[in-house]
């Protein structure tokens, strides 16, 4: 009933998806900073769960199940980046400290956390001291 190609493809997708999800778990424990954690976790976890849903779609070759699984994949790929973007924005606004090895922080000093506006000149002193890396803590800050 289930062909061997179908079964092998489904098994490969299952194992790839599981390894990606384990990688996301390791990344969320080992990364030093919330932004790096999000970068490791959101991409790897959405791809891993998408692979497992695709494995279900491949293995059950029925139209009802396949449509549901692919709808799940599309929904996951639409929502995960939006959620990660909103958490990252909220974390930056409330002043979660960056990793001490951070080199570039483009928003530093350009974002008014009270009025929620951006400006091109550096006029606002950051509320909290961010990263003390190689380029951090210049005289203006």
């Amino acid at each position: 009933m289930m062909s061997i190609v179908q079964e092998l493809a489904s098994a490969a997708l299952l194992i790839i998806g599981t390894l990606l999800l384990v990688l996301a778990g390791i990344g969320i424990v080992r990364m030093p900073d919330i932004f790096l954690r999000m970068s490791a976790a959101s991409k790897a976890s959405s791809l891993g769960a998408g692979c497992i849903l695709l494995a279900v779609a491949v293995s059950a070759a029925e139209i009802a199940i396949t449509v549901r699984a692919i709808a799940g994949v599309l929904f996951l790929f639409l929502t995960t980046p939006v959620a990660a973007h909103m958490i990252g924005r909220a974390a930056y606004m409330i002043g979660v400290p960056l990793w001490k090895g951070t080199v570039v922080d483009d928003l530093r000093g350009h974002y008014d956390t009270r009025r929620h506006t951006l400006s091109s000149v550096e006029h606002v002193k950051p509320r909290m001291q961010r990263g003390t890396g190689p380029l951090g803590d210049e005289p203006g800050a």
Binding site: G17, T18, L21, A24, G25, I28, I34, R37, M38, A41, S42, S45, S46, G48, A49, I52, L53, G72, L76, T80, A83, A84, I87, A90, A91, I94, V96
Partner: peptide
Amino acid sequence: PDRVVALDVMGTVAIA
């Protein structure tokens, strides 16, 4: 936000 990111990943793992 760290905890919220962890919960978000936990939800994705629950989907899988």
